[in-house]
Write a protein that binds this DNA or RNA. Structure first.
Lengths: 220, 220, 220, 220
DNA sequence: TATGAATGAGGTTTCATTCAT
DNA sequence: AATGAATGAAACCTCATTCAT
């Protein structure tokens, strides 16, 4: 009953696996363009597949959305991990990771929904945990190096990064897209850099609140 | 067909005007609770009015949404205007206005939609202009006072404020809500305070890009 | 959440109430003709109403089916009650009631479905109880009069009557229908008349088994 | 287009014939469990075969259903034939056959559908004829022996037997099933035994009406 | 030949909008 | 002028049937 199990049972036939990949890619694009309320039919149309094919691989729309989200988050996790492995614990390194994450999310914007959602499936909960853990590492060592203000946590960072406006489609519909988030990131980074002067109110968000945030803002 | 003409023609009767007010209030609350996809029927139910009454005053759902947006923005404009009139041009004054605006928007969060929207109606365009103008004043004089970094514009500020996570409904559904945005604001403010160290990329957003942002993020 | 509440809340407008009646009548006819798997669209078509109207009054198809079933059963209950009030406790009276009930059900045949159904709604459970109770009275007094074999219960009767083949639509589609059940009833009645010679196996069905029967045979 | 030709053309290879047998067995079980609306995919799953294999042997679902029906009826015919060959023309013999047929049908219950069906295929028509003929023999000789009431025909018997409630799946889903039909059969047999007292109305059903009955009740 | 992935028509359900009361 | 019932297009989802592997 878990809404997130397309690669269940035996391995898929080669062409079927390809279809799953394509469905996820197209769905990501469609949701980015039209939002979560885009119809499955639209995903089918753009991918050149029948709707039935999508439903064969994802039991319902929610599952598809979740899988797209998982996919996007996985890329972020990889990014942070890589940075942790390769970079020294400097401000520059922190900056680079943050910018990269934002760029990732920006161009792969996923659905914005609102409206009561169920508990997220286990896979989603898991990548989210992995992302938070990786960020905790990053935050901890950058703080240890004295470059990042002491009163923020990885949970704050996740929240802020997910609030950066995504890259917008060009009004003329085709052509390159407009990234209004870059400047926000700059300001945010300056705000995050030690030393700080504003005192941050209330305790840093809890995991429960992070989950609540995603559930409310993205329906995930 | 213009989607923004409820108080058109002659002035409304007293009770009719009251209805309009109430519809807007309830709609704001409903959209905040359930998001843009909340049904008109829900607005009717909560306001104790018939759906027909809502449609008498607003030609369609989009118009209703727009008017809620206008209402919320008007309150922001008033706030900024008041600050400009009463406060000296200090960092503290700037801070106070920003926090107030965020709190306004936070508790009156309006719909998040995505998906191609039409050109916004003239009223919406107009408050938006008024808000931007008021903020330009605020920004200019705070910068003149040397308290705000020089490389941001009112357009940047609007964008950043609209990217602060809104107050979330409590997971236990009733009771007080959770405000995760307060801490973000703190960081942002530190980032906005002069002197700055990050260099902001690309030119500040244009009015056209701001419109594009609202159209994409809120369908407005 | 109970799937059987169309007359909920305040009383309906006159025309709406009429529509509800008509929907039930038409649905009964449609299900009799085409079976439970008939589409709601078909009910809408035959009643000249939009599908939305049906869904306004019945939250889902199951609820509609249940209400048709309740309606049919109610008529049976009334019939038995009337007989109990007016008739003496003779074999002839018993016979008359049985024949009448069969004729009722025959011409108002309701859906035949199979397939796991949920617990029936409270209204359905209630008429069923009322029907069984009424039949218990009838059976008891006919047995006391020595006319009905002693080893059957009202539950046996319900089962048998509901197994009588319903009146069939004429193959030529229009014209009068064919009632193959009449003769079955004759034989059954002879079998029910005291004295008996076959010994009936196993205990009479329990209420639980009766419910199971309806759930399995009619999805109710 | 004839919907009943799986063993058409040359004789099947040994393994193919095995597949056909297995499909029929599984389908019978599935239809008994889930009703006619069970999906072909379910039959495929339970039989461990691909859906394509089923469609190779049966042109469509209707054909599969028909073949299951033919299979069940064939067993009934055999049963009656055996009884005719081995048993004397007594009431006890008649009783035994009837009970056996009911038990057969009960445990091998086939689909209950409703809804316009096409003319049954030739094979189905043929077993039905054979069953009716066999029953005619049985009825005739039991009547000649004076044990069975004179005013019923084999067609009546078929109808009555098919109106006995089938064995129901246990509500607790697994475990033994509940047979509510046994007691009905007892009553019916008493009703069929000579001498009778009820006068049966209308002429006994015609072959055409029997066919109509099956078409309507089982879609066959 | 057997498999199970793909298809798409059709069914259920929702909801913005219209309109009779 | 207000009400809320009716409408019907469009969304989600299922499954009989086809077809590439």
């Amino acid at each position: 009953m878990s809404p997130s199990t397309p690669p269940a049972g035996r391995p898929l036939r080669a062409d079927a696996r390809q279809n799953v990949e394509q469905i996820l890619d197209v769905a990501q694009e469609v949701f980015a363009d039209l939002g979560y309320q885009a119809s499955i039919a639209e995903v089918a149309r753009r991918s050149g597949l029948g709707m039935g094919t999508i439903y064969r691989h994802f039991p319902n729309k929610t599952a598809l959305v979740e899988h797209v989200a998982v996919k996007v988050m996985r890329e972020s996790v990889d990014e942070v991990r890589r940075a942790l492995a390769e970079q020294p614990a400097t401000w520059a390194a922190f900056t680079r990771v943050v910018r990269h994450m934002v760029r990732l999310r920006s161009s792969q914007l996923f659905p914005v929904s609102r409206g009561r959602a169920k508990e997220p499936g286990p896979e989603l909960a898991e990548v989210r945990t992995r992302l938070l853990t990786a960020l905790e590492d990053l935050v901890a060592r950058t703080q240890r190096a004295g470059a990042l203000r002491q009163d923020v946590t990885a949970y704050d960072i996740v929240l802020m990064l997910n609030s950066i406006p995504p890259r917008l489609p060009d009004p003329d519909d085709a052509g390159p897209t407009v990234d209004l988030g870059d400047r926000c990131v700059g300001v945010l980074l300056d705000g995050l850099r030690a030393p700080s002067s504003e005192t941050l109110p209330r305790p840093a968000p809890s995991r429960r609140e992070i989950d609540q945030f995603f559930r409310t803002m993205y329906g995930l």
